[in-house]
């Protein structure tokens, strides 16, 4: 099978159905297209008719600087092995995207998960609002960039207190200042300089 001609075939299908903002070839077996939100359904439908029958993944990416969410649909055709990423940006305020259940029924749970983790609404999906993974979540959707799991964890779950001399590994560096220094250095490495 010649994958180059497969990539060309994909190009033709997508260019004939919608406007491509950006095209990124990733490898012989993978290509990414950035399209407009309104074109997504059309493109997915025509790809499905051409044999990209499997929805491999659906999720979102948060871009807080641009104030956008980016939805990702990954399709696969097993006979012409090319993965296609279709990406579309939507607004971060009141994000909403029509469901693709009529095209790919398998998307039902992916969409529910995206709603739970990012807060994106999927009108057309009968129960996207129900919680799937978490129970009684009481904060902003956790995969948004402005959610800080560490702060949440510190607030909600008490953590174990250890005395300063809890672990003594080597005699030389036993003094408390040296320990504190080491810990500080480790923290700096971990967080990238901020205290």
């Amino acid at each position: 099978m010649n994958s180059i001609s497969n990539l060309e075939a994909v190009d033709n299908i997508i260019n004939s159905t919608g406007k491509v903002i950006k095209k990124e070839p990733i490898s012989d077996f993978q290509v990414a297209y950035e399209v407009n939100k309104s074109d997504v359904h059309q493109i997915l439908t025509s790809l499905k008719l051409e044999g990209w029958k499997q929805l491999s993944y659906l999720s979102a990416v948060d871009w807080p600087e641009e104030n956008k969410f980016e939805l990702v649909y990954i399709l696969l055709n097993w006979d012409k092995p090319v993965y296609i990423q279709i990406r579309a940006k939507i607004d971060r305020e009141n994000p909403s995207m029509n469901s693709i259940i009529p095209i790919f029924p398998g998307a039902k749970y992916y969409e529910r998960e995206a709603h739970e983790f990012f807060g994106i609404a999927f009108p057309g999906n009968p129960d996207y609002k129900k919680q799937l993974i978490m129970e009684q979540w009481d904060d902003i959707p956790p995969l948004r960039k402005d959610f800080d799991p560490r702060a949440y964890s510190d607030r909600k779950y008490p953590s174990r207190e250890y005395p300063d001399n809890f672990s003594k590994k080597d005699k030389e560096n036993e003094s408390l200042e040296k320990q504190a220094k080491r810990r500080k250095r480790a923290r700096k490495l971990r967080t990238g300089g901020e205290e």
Partner: peptide
């Protein structure tokens, strides 16, 4: 603390249960 250039990639492998991938 090395960096990785910008990009999007999906990497599939065949697991014992089927297609398993990281985006």
């Amino acid at each position: 603390r090395w960096t990785v250039p910008k990009g999007y990639v999906y990497a599939p492998v065949e697991s014992s249960r089927g297609e398993f991938g990281y985006y």
